[in-house]
Design a protein around this nucleic acid. Sequence first.
DNA 1: CGGCTGATGATCT
DNA 2: GATCATCAGCCGG
Length: 196
Amino acid sequence: MNPLTRAELPSEATALARFLIGKLIVRDAPEGRTSGRIVETEAYLPGDAACHAFRGETPRNRTLFRQHGHAYVYISYGMHRMLNVSAEDEGIGAGVLLRAIEPLEGFDLMRARRGVERLTDLARGPGRLAEAMAITMGLDGDDLCAPGPLWIADDGSPAAEIGVSVRIGITKETDRPLRFFERGSRFVSGGKALNV
DNA sequence: CGGCTGATGATCT
DNA sequence: GATCATCAGCCGG
């Protein structure tokens, strides 16, 4: 398991969203380590009305404007946290939403946090992923390319076959093909029709 | 299964 | 005051 450096990450949101499929996200918490293979992402681009950065920088979305490879965390529907990766150069607001992982380490910790047993229910969907990985608002702004509580890595596993679809659950710019996923994975959200 | 709905609060207008 | 990158639970077929 090799930590990813910033230089290895594409600094364009669509390319980064594709690149992250099959990579690892690792959470080192006081209770222990949980990690997973990223199997589903969505890109939110500069000039994209669905992107939180669309109306300019605010206190909430400021990490979207940081150099690519920082964690942008926010709360959705008052209760779910979403984990994103800032995607472009300093000053350009764009991000990649992590929507699902295939759990690799810390199954029981994830089960305890989620309150469910089934492996495929632990981190399928962005809210579930964040809960399983104990993503808190305190992680907003964390550098994913540096040692710390949350980081990304490559385990050298073969490149997955990547499927593409429109993004899920948004109300603007609904026709853009900016959702990426590992084809056929049981750990992808959105139902059978959305994993081919 | 698929479809619908209530929960719930930060954020911005 | 409206909006919202979600989820679990419930209902019907």
